[in-house]
Amino acid sequence: MKVNIIHFSGTGNSEYIAKYIGEKLKDNGDKVKIESIDKNPKIDEDVELLIIGGPIYASNVPEKLIRWVLRNVENKNANCIVYSTSAGLINAHGVDSLAKKLNKKGYNILAKETYVMPRNFYFGKYPKNTKKEVEDMINNTNKQLDILVDKIKKESLSLENMENKGVLGKDLLAETFSIMAKFIGKNLSADENCIKCGLCVKNCPQNNIRFEKDKTIKFDNKCMACMKCIHSCPKNAINYKNKKYEQYNINEYIE
Rank of each mutant, 00 (worst) to 15 (best):
S9A: 07
I250T: 05
I238K: 10
L172C: 08
I250Q: 05
D146S: 08
K112Y: 02
K165Q: 06
I34G: 05
D96R: 14
E74H: 14
G12Y: 05
L102H: 04
L89A: 12
I109Q: 03
N129S: 02
D150C: 13
K202D: 07
L49Y: 09
N79C: 10
H93G: 13
L89H: 10
G88A: 14
E135K: 14
D38L: 14
N79V: 07
I21E: 04
T11N: 04
L102E: 00
Q144F: 09
N207V: 01
N187P: 00
E135P: 04
I138M: 12
E163N: 15
V3R: 06
V149Y: 08
N161W: 06
E163C: 13
S84A: 15
D146N: 15
I138Y: 11
D214F: 13
T85Q: 05
K235L: 06
L159E: 03
C229A: 07
K228C: 04
G198S: 12
I66V: 15
C80R: 00
S86P: 09
I66S: 05
E23H: 12
N164C: 15
E135S: 13
K39I: 06
T114Q: 15
N161M: 06
L168S: 11
R67N: 11
D46F: 05
A174F: 11
K39C: 08
N28S: 14
A181V: 02
C197P: 14
T11G: 05
M162Y: 13
H7S: 00
V149F: 09
L145K: 07
N129Y: 01
G54P: 04
V61Q: 02
H93T: 07
S14L: 01
I81R: 00
V167K: 08
I66W: 09
I51W: 02
Y115S: 03
L102R: 04
N193G: 01
C223P: 14
V73Q: 08
K241L: 10
K24Q: 11
G166D: 03
K243G: 02
S36Q: 01
Y16A: 00
N249Y: 06
N40R: 05
Y248F: 15
N140P: 10
R119F: 07
N91K: 11
E163M: 15
S232M: 12
K125E: 12
E15W: 06
Y83C: 05
K202G: 01
I6M: 05
G22Q: 09
Y20S: 09
N203D: 15
K218T: 08
D136M: 13
F121T: 03
M224F: 05
I34D: 02
D171A: 04
N193P: 02
S189W: 09
E63W: 12
V116Y: 15
V201P: 15
C194M: 09
I51E: 00
T216W: 13
D220I: 00
K31I: 09
K165L: 10
Y20N: 06
F123P: 09
D220L: 07
